[in-house]
């Protein structure tokens, strides 16, 4: 299992692996927003939590279709399905590799990008905490979407349409945590709900993803 994780990480940092793509996209989104809405500090500070979370979400989406598509094309997925490790473990490792190459860099870089949107005081702390708790759910839900669309040619658009609605609860509670944190209010409730979504997705969705792949390999 660890071998699969290491292979995916190695593939991600090799040529054409797409490591850093999500991060660069996130940077561009946060740079574009002030151009779009104007440079007033108050306006930016008010929309910063939402924009940062939407940006993180879209950056996650960008690399989802690679999770299984490449392995499907070169036949690795067939071979992994007949290998001794269960398919549930394969999809879990795939989601973990996606989080390490996309989610984790976002968590680390988000406070820096927050400066560009005039995020206030406590917001930096809560942005990091909420992204750290929320991005694993984005990776796991996205892996499920990728598993559903694995056999389709150019299934990327369909994948986005399937996955984005499923991201809504994570987005609501994530952005709410940051907004409350910025305004010095209690953040316990949205943070707990965010953690709950992540825990439930990580526990349940690998089984659904593995089932979807079994159907798609037929």
């Amino acid at each position: 299992m660890i071998a699969l994780l290491l292979r995916d990480l190695r593939l991600a940092i090799r040529a054409g692996g797409g490591f850093g793509l999500g991060l660069a996209f996130f940077l561009i989104v946060t740079v574009l927003v002030p151009f779009g809405v104007g440079p007033e500090g108050d306006t930016l500070a008010r929309i910063a939590p939402g924009i940062l979370w939407v940006g993180a979400l879209l950056a996650c989406l960008l690399s989802l279709d690679r999770i299984f598509a490449l392995d499907f094309e070169d036949g690795s997925l067939d071979l992994l399905a007949t290998a001794p490790i269960p398919l549930e473990a394969v999809v879990t490792m795939k989601a973990a590799a996606h989080w390490l190459t996309t989610g984790l860099p976002l968590v680390v870089a988000a406070p820096v990008f927050g400066v560009l949107l005039n995020l206030q005081g406590e917001g930096f702390f809560w942005l990091t905490v909420s992204l750290a708790l929320g991005t694993p759910a984005l990776s796991v839900i996205g892996t499920f979407g990728a598993a559903l669309t694995v056999g389709l040619k150019r299934g990327g658009l369909l994948l986005s349409l399937l996955v984005l609605p499923l991201y809504v609860p994570t987005l609501i509670f994530g952005a709410e945590t940051v907004r409350r944190g910025t305004e010095g209010m209690e953040t316990g409730a949205p943070l707990m709900l965010l953690a709950g979504i992540t825990a439930a997705s990580v526990a349940l969705l690998p089984f659904a993803s593995a089932a979807a792949i079994r159907v798609n390999l037929r």
Binding site: L11, G16, D74, G75, L79
Partner: peptide, 8 residues
């Protein structure tokens, strides 16, 4: 298909 990764 051989299931090989071109960049490995």
């Amino acid at each position: 298909a051989d299931g090989l990764k071109a960049t490995l």
